[in-house]
Design a protein around this nucleic acid. Structure first.
Lengths: 229, 229
DNA sequence: CGGCTACTTGACATCTATCAACCGGGGTGG
DNA sequence: CCACCCCGGTTGATAGATGTCAAGTAGCCG
């Protein structure tokens, strides 16, 4: 269990960290790697496995029959990819850049969860967080202008990324404009234009694979509360 | 425990129905009534209680600082109002017409849940459903036109209502246009116009406190999958 | 160096929001 | 019992924001 270490600590050791439970989990986990663009699991597939993200970024999305796409969340290291309940995936996930995954056999994981109240509690908490995030996102898509959506995305993304690699002025944006657009319910041109507008206003600076959020505007930008999963 | 009966069966007896657990739950529950428009709980309040809906319809919503509102869901009998986790309500709920509620003291309910795997499982399943619904709604708000949103709402609402009072051609809409608008991320005028357009097309008929969904169009209308909580 | 892909920018179309007037039913008070 | 008022809903005219289509630019990889 080499690379695995970077995953468990974030996910399971936040509060209740039982050594035995952790050992069990580690025993079940199989580490896998994916290249950028590869699909990890597909909406509708029978969920034989559950996944945890160790390294990299994963976009979770749904495809509509006519090809439209809704990105449900961007996962960061420590996040679950898909809740290990329900026997089919309710969305697809693919790698944005290289990623390291922990794969769990679903049935065994399920059994482990049902017999370990500690893990069970963690799972419920995780679900509650997800729900909260989904409702934040819902509120944003229901009421926000293009600019509010983009700003909210940047602020939330920065907060989440900062948790992983603390000190850094620039916020990396490994995903494409199209991904951001599909996450925010906008078109990529609108995202691009909004970025440009924010830059003209000196709220951000656009850099090769990310943005720099400028100090002064940050306060004014906040407004919205929660955000992505 | 008189009126209470109409709540528990739907919520807790769908699958695993343990007589002892049910008895415990019933012991904790206090029935309350509210008139239309009354607020049952408020976003941000400390959640001393958890609530289950016995009769009527409740709108669950968030208020943004500038007064905009996002209706997160319309609850029907058998639904939980707010997940009994987290120590503050993450949204408000108020009665649409008269409602009957079951009130649970949160701490005791929590204890009961943590010691009863059956109830725990139910709760997780409920949370998973909620999450699924939230993501459906997210997809709708992110990609749907006004008409798609309204149609999706009507179809999903009909399905949910039908579960309660099976045979009825007309779909009751006890909530106001403004509520529907805030649920769908539209303005009430747009909702009204969309209703009118659908009626002109003979897809629906607008009746005093509801609509009738016409047979032929129904097939064409479906398109979207899931929906409200 | 060439070609691909992501991204940006521009002109224009479309949709929904906005502002405002109007309609109609239910309840209240005369 | 009738008239009025109030509220929710509908409808119209107009404006603003985002989507659409299309061209053009920049960075990356072979």
């Amino acid at each position: 269990m080499p690379r695995t270490a970077s995953f468990f600590p974030t996910l399971f050791c936040r509060e209740s960290c039982d050594a035995r439970e952790l050992a069990e989990l580690t025993r079940l986990a199989t580490p896998i790697r994916f290249d950028g663009g590869q699909t990890i699991f597909r909406e509708g597939d029978v969920a034989r496995s559950a996944f945890g993200l160790s390294q990299g970024v994963v976009r979770l999305y749904r495809l509509l029959p006519d090809g439209r796409r809704q990105v449900v969340a961007f996962a960061l290291p420590g996040d679950f990819l898909a809740m290990p309940l329900g026997d089919r995936f309710s969305f697809s996930g693919d790698a944005v850049g290289e990623v390291s995954i922990c794969r769990f056999p679903r049935e065994e994981l399920k059994r482990l969860i049902q017999t370990n109240p500690g893990i069970m509690r963690q799972l419920i908490e995780f679900a509650a967080n997800e729900l909260q995030s989904a409702q934040d996102q819902l509120t944003l898509l229901g009421n926000g202008s293009a600019e509010e959506r983009v700003v909210s995305f940047l602020v939330n993304w920065r907060r989440r990324v900062a948790r992983q690699t603390p000190p850094s002025q620039a916020v990396p944006l490994p995903m494409r404009r199209q991904d951001i657009a599909d996450f925010l319910g906008l078109k990529l041109e609108t995202v691009s234009r909004t970025f440009a507008k924010l830059e003209q206003r000196n709220a951000i600076r656009i850099v090769p694979h990310g943005v720099v959020l400028m100090r002064p505007e940050q306060g004014a930008l906040v407004a919205e509360g929660g955000g992505a999963s």
